[in-house]
């Protein structure tokens, strides 16, 4: 069973503001029955754009109901502008945390709030599948949404992405694509500061330095994404600028693997070790 906090259990057992406001000023419905959770949020808003009442109806697990209850408690009394700043992290924190696998419940709360505010302001919330391209077909999650949860929650692994927005939680076929999107966002987030990275150094590296950098780069930049996908990479040999690696686990024998290898591993090693690096796959 989940390790739910007392506060979460309280909001599940005694949910606040269940129901539907008659003649609401704002309405939003997010999620759907296929995906296993859905939330209908109705708001009453006064002339000063203050949320005077909020009610919810939720189809979903204990943490989905508790997140919805928490959301309504958090927004009542706030102006729409104030409420708009609420993030899914704050919803989770309000409940003294959610299990990692349940973070998507807090994301659903945040999305419902945004959609309701948009509805009030007459902005049509673009259907998610029209904004960006569907990556996860099982749960209808777009690249835009994945990029967003990665950015806003500082996610590091494909597993995190699944926990926060469900993408990759069904047939799992889209996991390599998620890894790519994740890597893209992470790069973009890191590059301005550049603190975490040591770019290609000036001057010639000794063989030992080069070997260390290659190993570090593989560990830091490449392995996590492969691990997330059930695969792994092994460094076989280094001969001058030729780096031989082998793919393991679910990556081994995968048709896309040599392309993956060429594109991502070589790019990383060229970026962090030497422009001259050539990567070869050893099939063992």
């Amino acid at each position: 069973m989940w390790n739910y906090s007392e506060k979460l259990m309280d909001h599940f057992l005694n949910p606040r503001n269940v129901g539907e406001i008659e003649n609401p000023d704002a309405v939003a419905e997010v999620g759907n029955i296929t995906c296993g959770d859905a939330l209908r949020l109705t708001l009453k808003v006064d002339e000063e754009e203050r949320i005077v009442d909020a009610k919810f109806k939720t189809f979903g697990c204990g943490s989905a109901i508790a997140s919805s209850s928490a959301l309504t408690e958090m927004i009542i009394g706030k102006t729409l502008d104030e409420a708009a700043g609420i993030t899914n992290k704050e919803i989770a924190a309000y409940l003294n945390g959610l299990p990692p696998e349940k973070m998507h419940c807090s994301v659903m709360g945040m999305e419902a709030l945004e959609a309701a505010i948009n509805h009030y302001r007459g902005i049509e919330t673009p259907a998610e599948d029209r904004e960006g391209e569907i990556v996860c077909k099982c749960f209808g999650v777009t690249d835009k949404k994945i990029e967003r949860v990665v950015r806003e929650n500082n996610l590091k692994t494909v597993e995190d992405v699944t926990h926060f927005c469900k993408a990759g939680g069904g047939c799992e076929e889209c996991k390599p694509q998620i890894a790519e999107i994740l890597e893209g966002v992470l790069q973009e987030m890191r590059s301005p500061s550049g603190v975490e990275r040591r770019r290609v150094p000036r001057g010639k590296l000794t063989n030992i330095e080069k070997m260390q950098r290659i190993m570090e780069t593989i560990d830091r930049e490449i392995r996590p994404a492969l691990n997330a996908d059930g695969g792994d990479i092994e460094l076989i040999d280094i001969d001058g600028d030729r780096v031989q690696v082998a793919l393991r686990g679910s990556c081994a024998g995968c048709a896309a693997s040599s392309i993956t290898l060429k594109m991502s591993v070589e790019a990383k090693l060229r970026e962090f070790v030497s422009e001259q690096i050539v990567v070869e796959e050893v099939v063992s």
């Binding site: 296993g36 979903g60 697990c61 204990g62 989905a64 696998e101 349940k102 749960f139 939680g169 069904g170």
Partner: peptide, 21 residues
């Protein structure tokens, strides 16, 4: 249900049987 196991899809048995979501 999906949520009790930590997976996101409901039981593979019920899905194989075509039980509606």
């Amino acid at each position: 249900s999906a949520c009790t196991s930590g997976s996101l899809e409901p039981s593979h048995v019920l899905r194989a049987m075509g039980v509606p979501y």
